[in-house]
Structure formats: structure tokens, C-alpha cells
Design a protein around this nucleic acid. Structure first.
Length: 415
DNA sequence: TCTGGGGTCCTAGGACCC
DNA sequence: TCTGGGGTCCTAGGACCC
């Protein structure tokens, strides 16, 4: 059996742990730049919010009216809370797959205990130890565990799928578009076949047609619904591409501002790259105008450079990003968003030297020292001057909570 | 005034190999 | 009249996820 443990309204729940006055109140968390609402507590959903990416400025009246607590996103806090939850889950399984920041699959093979009891034990343990409420779904396959988990959220918090009849009953009430791996487009394609619920898909007996319409993945989902496990537990693996992209708080048309932004994105991307002990062969940048103000597709450009030799050198990658900028920058555009993407990622151990090279050329030692300083004294304690000091393009975050769990200066106070 | 960010997997088709 | 067969690798685009 497989359990899926999923934190309820994770970002909101994290904020609530350190802001007890918001318990029982509707809570929302905003995206970067305080642009949109991206997370909603149960109370916020109850008053009709919950549309992913509702722009914040349109919600202001509702927020006032319902006394909604608003937070800017605080990823440092969420990442740390996530780690705490995952650490606890390790105690209940020999195989944990951390699927995202707020959910994980547990292989329960060999567990003797009653599953329902176990589910409740996990739930109360996590709540007591971290303050985060979770839902638990337990079933014979991942897809079914996902379904069970979804239902658990609206009920007691723990659902176990053991009895075939009960499973079918649940699937009959479960829209096919809500299945894990079936999105709106696929759901629309299934409609002409008369497939509306998960049960319809399970029972549909022309597998070839499903294969044609939904490709391999759809066939696997169908089998998983039938209790035939196709999706294995996966190990955490290195990223195959790393992207740092941001919207700006205002339109940017100054090239130097863009250079600073790209340098900062490149710096972050390289830190991620080194953290997973990889190098990359390819750097891309893109620039975007605003969909809402000055949209001009001809100025939404993408440029790529391929290295002869893979690199994890922040300075080299900043330099490359700047060269790419020269290629696609238009002084009259006014950009709203930009990003740096690293591709062609390889393990650093197997990265090859150039044929004509006799030694590693990069600023290895310097960067190593910089990483150590930043790890000890906080992010960006030292950085390339290319990242700039003013950072005009910087994010807006007016409702940000403190780094309660990761900074000595920001520990919560108890009166 | 103001509209998110970061990923994965699959497939078809092109280029290339012997 | 008529011109092989089998395979790999890479890429772009689509769909999906949280």
C-alpha cells in the first residue's frame, strides 16, 4: 500500500503557525511581487476565493470586507517547514518520495498496523510536532492514493481505500479532470467517449483508444485506477534544467537594470547548480513585455549560448547572459519579466575538459569560498558586483513574515 | 499603480549512422 | 515501372504537475 500525505493549504498553514491570531480567519498568500493570490486557507475558499492567480489588486475590497489576513510569500519559511514535515514522515516508511514542497508518497509495504490507525497517527504527529495540518490517503496505487487524499481533505483527514465497492463508489463521484495527470485538455478529449468520472475511465475497455488520445500516461492512469501499479516510487534526482525567472515590479527599459537582474538570476541559478553538484552546457535568457500594458510579441525574445565545455562558474555564466542580452535587447521595449535558464546539466564528476585544455580554468576556488561565506553569513553576503547595489528591479513584498525558523535575528517572541 | 515561478514527461519528426 | 532496412539521438512543442 502507498500513502500520500499532503499538507492542507501549505503556505497559509505555515504562516498561521507563527501568527496564531489568524487561526479561524481566512488567510491568503501572494505570489512574488505581491502580484496574485496563490494560496488560500479553507476559510478563504469558503468565501469564494481560490481561483489560482487572482490579481491582488482586484481582491482588495473582498479582503477588507472579510478581514482576510494577507501574506507575501516567504519561501525560506516554507522550505524549512517542509523539511520538518518530511523528516517526520521518514519515521513511518523505509521509502519516502518527496513529491513537492507540501506532499510526499510513503511506501507502506510491510506495515503490520491497521492503515486507518496509522494514517491518523501520522496526521496527529505532524500537527503536534510542526503545527501543520495534513490529509492522508492510503491505497494500492499512487493514482488511487491521490484520489483518497483528495477525498480525505473534505472529510476526516484520513481515507483508506481497501474495499473494491467503496473504491468504485468514490470513483463514480470523482470527475475525471481531477485525476492526477489528467488536465483540462485531456478531459475535454475524453468527453466524446462518454468519460466523465474516474470510474468511466477505469471501466472504458478500449485501451487502444485511450493510448491514442492520452498517450502512455493515460493508459497508466487507467491501470492504476484498476489497482495495477504502474507508477513506481521515485528517488530524488538532480534537476535537468534550472530556471530563475521573475516579473519586475515595474516595466524596465534600462539596459543596466536588466544586466543587474540577469546577473542576480544567474547567480542564484549557479548556486542551485553547484548545490546539486552539476555543471551545465547551455545558458538561455529571455525577456518579456507585459501582457497587460505594452505587449509586443516581437520583443519577447529568447537567446541561447552553448559552451564548448560545461561550467558551474557564476562569473562565466553572468558574462554569457550579458552577451546574450546584447543580442536581444531593444531600448524601446519596456520589459516586465526576464529569466535565466540552465540546460544540458551533467554530473560535475563526469564533465569533460575541452580537448585543448590542460587544467580547470574556472574560478573554482573563489566561488567555493563565496559559497562558504554565503552559507555561513546568509545569502548574498558576497556577490558579483554585476548584481548591482540598488536593484531597482527588485521584488515588492509588503506583507512578508519573518524567517522565524532559519534566522537567529528573527525568532518568534512569546509574551 | 497592480496580473507567479519552477519543473517533468512524452511524442513526432528531422538528421544522421551503417 | 521501379531505388532498403534498421536504428539512435536530438529538438520543439504539448500537456501536465505543484
Amino acid at each position: 500500500m502507498i500513502a500520500l500525505v499532503d499538507c492542507n493549504s501549505f503556505y497559509c498553514s505555515c504562516e498561521r503557525v507563527f501568527a496564531p491570531s489568524t487561526r479561524g480567519r481566512p488567510v491568503i498568500v501572494l505570489s512574488n511581487n505581491d502580484g496574485c493570490a496563490i494560496a488560500f486557507s479553507r476559510e478563504a475558499k469558503a468565501i469564494g476565493l481560490g481561483q489560482m492567480c487572482d490579481p491582488y489588486f482586484k481582491l482588495k475590497d473582498t479582503i477588507k470586507e472579510h478581514n482576510i489576513a494577507v501574506f507575501s510569500s516567504n519561501y525560506t519559511l516554507y522550505d524549512d517547514m517542509s523539511k520538518r514535515v518530511m523528516n517526520l514522515l521518514q519515521n513511518y516508511t523505509h521509502e519516502l518520495e518527496v513529491y513537492s514542497v507540501d506532499e510526499a508518497f510513503l511506501n507502506l509495504e510491510g506495515h503490520q498496523e491497521n492503515y486507518l490507525k496509522l494514517g491518523h497517527k501520522i496526521k496527529s504527529d505532524i500537527l503536534r510536532s510542526t503545527g501543520i495540518p495534513v490529509g492522508v490517503g492510503i491505497a494500492s496505487t499512487k493514482v488511487l492514493a491521490k484520489v483518497a487524499n483528495r477525498i480525505a481533505k473534505n472529510q476526516s483527514g484520513v481515507i483508506v481505500f481497501e474495499n473494491e465497492k467503496e473504491i468504485d463508489q468514490a470513483l463514480k463521484n470523482f470527475p475525471v479532470k481531477d485525476l492526477w495527470g489528467i488536465g483540462s485538455k485531456s478531459a475535454r478529449k475524453l468527453l466524446p467517449l462518454g468519460i466523465r468520472t474516474a470510474w468511466d475511465l477505469k471501466k472504458y475497455n478500449n485501451e487502444k483508444i485511450i493510448q491514442n488520445i492520452l498517450t502512455k500516461k493515460g493508459r497508466q492512469i487507467q491501470d492504476e485506477l484498476r489497482g495495477i501499479s504502474c507508477l513506481e516510487m521515485e528517488e530524488v534526482s538532480n534537476k535537468e534544467n534550472i530556471a530563475i525567472t521573475r516579473s519586475f515590479s515595474k516595466l524596465i527599459s534600462n539596459k543596466n537594470d536588466l544586466k543587474e537582474a540577469l546577473a542576480s538570476f544567474a547567480t542564484k541559478a549557479c548556486e542551485k547548480l553547484r548545490a546539486q553538484e552539476s555543471t551545465c552546457f547551455e545558458v538561455s535568457i529571455f525577456l518579456q513585455t507585459s501582457f497587460f500594458q505594452n505587449y509586443s510579441p516581437e520583443h519577447n525574445l529568447f537567446a541561447t549560448h552553448r559552451f564548448n565545455q560545461s561550467s558551474q562558474d557564476t562569473f562565466k555564466i553572468i558574462q554569457t547572459a550579458h552577451q546574450l542580452l546584447e543580442k536581444i535587447f531593444h531600448a524601446d521595449a519596456g520589459y516586465k519579466k526576464a529569466g535565466v535558464i540552465l540546460n544540458g546539466i551533467r554530473d560535475q564528476e563526469i564533465s569533460q575538459l575541452n580537448f585543448f585544455q590542460t587544467e580547470t580554468p574556472d574560478n573554482d576556488k573563489l566561488i567555493n569560498v563565496m559559497d562558504k561565506i554565503n552559507a555561513r553569513f546568509g545569502p548574498q553576503t558576497v556577490k558579483s558586483a554585476a548584481c548591482g547595489l540598488n536593484q531597482e528591479w527588485k521584488l515588492i513584498a509588503q506583507h512578508k513574515s519573518k524567517r522565524f525558523t532559519t534566522s537567529w535575528d528573527e525568532l518568534p517572541l512569546v509574551y
